[in-house]
Design a protein around this nucleic acid. Sequence first.
DNA 1: CGCCAGCGTTAAGAATCCGCTAAGATCGGT
DNA 2: ACCGATCTTAGCGGATTCTTAACGCTGGCG
Lengths: 233, 233
Amino acid sequence: MAPEAPPYTLLIIEDEIEITRAVGAALREQNPAIIEASGGKTGLDAVKSSHPDIIILDLGLPDLDGLEVCQRIRAVTDAPIIVLTARHGEADTVALLNAGADDYIIKPFSTQELAARVAAQLRRAAVPRHAPVSINADGLSIDIHLRQVKRGPMLVRLTPIEWEILAVLTSDPGRVFTHQQLFKAVWNRPYGDARLYLRVHLTNLRRKIERDPADPRLIITEPGVGYRFVAEW
Amino acid sequence: MAPEAPPYTLLIIEDEIEITRAVGAALREQNPAIIEASGGKTGLDAVKSSHPDIIILDLGLPDLDGLEVCQRIRAVTDAPIIVLTARHGEADTVALLNAGADDYIIKPFSTQELAARVAAQLRRAAVPRHAPVSINADGLSIDIHLRQVKRGPMLVRLTPIEWEILAVLTSDPGRVFTHQQLFKAVWNRPYGDARLYLRVHLTNLRRKIERDPADPRLIITEPGVGYRFVAEW
DNA sequence: CGCCAGCGTTAAGAATCCGCTAAGATCGGT
DNA sequence: ACCGATCTTAGCGGATTCTTAACGCTGGCG
């Protein structure tokens, strides 16, 4: 029986061989074509020559800064980038997400989690998305066109800022938006203490749309990073 | 067989040649006359000189801010504007739609999707307004064709502006129309303090059609945003 | 065990927005 | 030119929303 053709091409930019192997093992069932690069420069070359469908990028590269690599990849392709980050490299992770990375995984990671995230990113990238007309999650329905939110049959009144936050988060369900990304999208002014504002408005927003605001299921906090909207219902 | 005359004129404002070509290829079957502009300024000139039927606008232009270009196009023409936006750019879709854009597509896009959206916008622009013939809500009946409003058996006299406001709001019940959208639809002139006018005329309109003008049920205020007509009766 | 950073929550003052009134200005018909 | 209807413009008071600060909780870390 002939092996099936790889369903997608994955590029992993990683200098530690153990991790490269772990990634390969985690994704064995999906049977992707895997390209390996051990540094930022070779990684960039690989992006240009191989047109991968998804890219896994480690932060601690010896030759180039991860941030720069990420930006330069983003200048060439829209393929999803998943960042591998150490436990305490949170600041770097945030900078990377701001630079265009799609998701991040903290080392050490479970093979299941990696496989799930890769699959999720591929799913999102495969469908050229337009903002969905309506979203339904956990008894909540959001109609972008009507600018209307319902909790069951009840209309929910949102203030402009609350609506903007919800609109941004739901524009790409599952994706993490950093504090800065959200702040910039909603306030559209240079800088301020993004977290200060977001904390307050997220509280108010959750009070209106979550079943139990103390145990949010729709808008999830990513500590030190930002927020994401989950629509898996 | 002689080539058929172009059914419509399309202007694409885009600095990346690959995308321009991709758009051209996607629409080949529709055989439009295509005008190309590589920047915001030349794009605006082209709008004024060529009177396109539909406009495709990339956000990431080198010379001008995409939002500004959008607004300035809208000040000149009513032709549909479809915005091309990067997946990782500021997906400030709300601001875009407020600035006068009619639809947006996230890059990368499929040729089918682009063609479908262009066709949809042209269709929508061709038919001025196809609202339901009559609306009944809370004892109020509105007949669009007859230009007639009744509160029970009593005829209600509306001034031209009041009628226009009501007609716009009821053209899409439940949807929020921003101050700017309403102002543009009714007054059809570039600038003015939309809220100032709307406040007064909304007061007068409510006095005529609401049961209790102090507690409006038909025309709901969305603070900081605009108004919506509710027809859930 | 105590410290600290990050987050959620609450509350109060500031800023903004809205409904309403009313006085000119404008328009259209006779 | 007159007159009534409509539109524009201004301003006040009340309501809503935003900003800002303070406090409590939790979980990691020395």
